[in-house]
């Protein structure tokens, strides 16, 4: 059953106009306390309504003030929106953290896909390199000392021969002696 308080609350919440509340006040036989409560709230709403006119700026004043605020904002350095906001038609909404994680996952997946796309290129380059080596072998372009193309060797065979020749020659620098009073450097 709807009581007078429900009607009053409906009026205070904006669901009813003042006339409805006034009608209730006059039509229904209300206890004194209830009538006083209604009068009090109706008066309060009147006072608040009157206050609204005092506390609101005029349109011209508000327009000028808003213009000044925009000028100040325009001079501010650019501000970054929070990362989890989503923009649709110039209006942000809060994305959940799950969405942020999902977005990062998608970006990562995209990066992996890019790497995957570049892999065939690398594989193709390797194939071309192997083919080139085979071509060189077949054409006999290699020096006699460089026939050994063992990948496990540290130096090409020809380079090793050069080292051997250098070691055997007398032009090798003598071992360096440390200055007097200084301990020889340990290997």
């Amino acid at each position: 059953m709807i009581g007078w308080e429900d009607i009053l609350n409906e009026f205070l919440e904006g669901g009813l106009v003042r006339a409805d509340a006034e009608a209730l006040r006059w039509k229904i036989q209300l206890p004194t306390e209830a009538r006083a409560a209604m009068d009090r709230d109706l008066q309060l709403v009147d006072d608040l309504g009157a206050m609204g006119g005092v506390m609101n700026p005029s349109a011209a004043t508000a327009g000028a003030a808003i213009g000044r605020i925009f000028d100040v904002l325009a001079r501010e350095s650019a501000i970054e929106a929070p990362a989890h906001w989503r923009w649709e038609a110039g209006v942000p909404t809060a994305g959940r953290m799950d969405d942020v994680v999902a977005k990062e996952d998608a970006e990562l997946a995209g990066q992996l896909a890019d790497i995957g796309k570049s892999m065939p290129i690398a594989a193709g380059a390797l194939d071309r390199l192997v083919q080139r080596i085979r071509d060189i072998e077949l054409s006999g372009e290699l020096d006699p000392g460089q026939e050994d193309c063992d990948a496990m060797r540290i130096f090409p065979a020809g380079q090793e021969l050069k080292f051997d020749a250098l070691a055997a020659s007398k032009d090798v620098l003598p071992p360096q002696t440390p200055p007097a009073g200084e301990e020889p450097r340990k290997p």
């Binding site: 700026p57 003030a65 808003i66 501000i79 110039g90 209006v91």
Partner: peptide, 23 residues
């Protein structure tokens, strides 16, 4: 990008709510 959107959106918020803020 969103920096421009952010400022424009905030300006709309201020414009639409200036009377409330003042009150």
């Amino acid at each position: 990008g969103t920096q421009v959107e952010l400022r424009q959106w905030f300006e709309r918020v201020v414009r639409n709510n200036y009377r409330l803020l003042y009150s």
